[in-house]
Simulated scan of single mutants.
Amino acid sequence: MNSTLRSRCAKAIGAGALSVALLSAGTAGAFAASPSAASPRPKPIMTSSAKPTGTETAKPTRTGTAKPTRTGTPMANGSITARVSKAQVKAGQSVTFTGRAKGVKVGTKVVLLRMHNGKWTALKSSTVLKNGSSYSLVTKFNNKGQEQLRVMAGKVVSPTVVVTVK
């Protein structure tokens, strides 16, 4: 029992010493790499924030926001999430889309959209927002390939979800 306790203590002390050595070396390297006081310091420049590119996986957790403007680009006024039950399905197999909306009234129609020939087209699958602003849509895909999909409630649109049909 005592030998086990001693070996554990020795391991802990060794790990601590190694950690201190690594931190010291990293700190010394950071000071060596820092610019001298005589050189001018760069000033920060404000830029716009990055937007999602629509390459999310089958379970995106980010919420999409959209409100059409004169140019057709989305603008924040609400949000909706979209999760898919299966990222890969066989042709003819059912897929369930679920999610929640914020800033959208209960009872608003929720429509599943699909990217087809460079345009978002509505599928026949639709429902309404329930209490708690949640929804659930079920649809089947018969054509093989990758389907780019998103959900729209009113004027609010979710991020793109990709489903592979085999």
Rank of each mutant, 00 (worst) to 15 (best):
P68R: 01
R41F: 10
A37H: 10
T57H: 07
R100T: 02
R62L: 14
G118E: 09
L23S: 11
K105D: 08
S136L: 03
N117T: 13
T139Y: 02
I80P: 01
V104H: 04
V104Y: 04
T96L: 05
N143G: 05
K105H: 03
A87K: 04
K124T: 12
K51W: 02
Y135G: 00
G145R: 09
F31W: 15
N143Q: 12
G103Q: 02
H116T: 15
V84M: 02
K51C: 07
G118M: 10
T57F: 10
S49Y: 15
T81R: 06
N143A: 10
V106S: 01
V128W: 00
N142F: 13
G78P: 04
T27N: 11
P60H: 08
K155R: 04
A101W: 01
T96E: 03
K130G: 01
P68M: 03
R83P: 03
V106T: 09
G29N: 05
G26T: 10
A76T: 13
P35F: 08
R62P: 06
A76M: 10
N142Q: 05
T57G: 12
G26N: 12
N142I: 08
G103E: 08
E147Q: 05
K86L: 04
K144T: 14
W120Y: 10
M46E: 12
N77A: 06
G92Y: 08
K105P: 03
T53S: 10
L129H: 02
F31K: 09
V89H: 00
P60L: 11
F31E: 10
T69Q: 02
S36P: 15
A50Y: 11
A33P: 05
V128M: 00
G72L: 12
V110Y: 01
R41L: 12
S39F: 14
K124Y: 11
K119H: 12
T73D: 14
P52R: 07
T98Y: 01
N117Q: 13
K109I: 07
E147K: 08
V84W: 02
S85W: 09
S133A: 04
L123H: 01
S34E: 13
G64D: 09
A82D: 13
A38M: 11
R83V: 11
F141H: 06
P35N: 09
A66G: 15
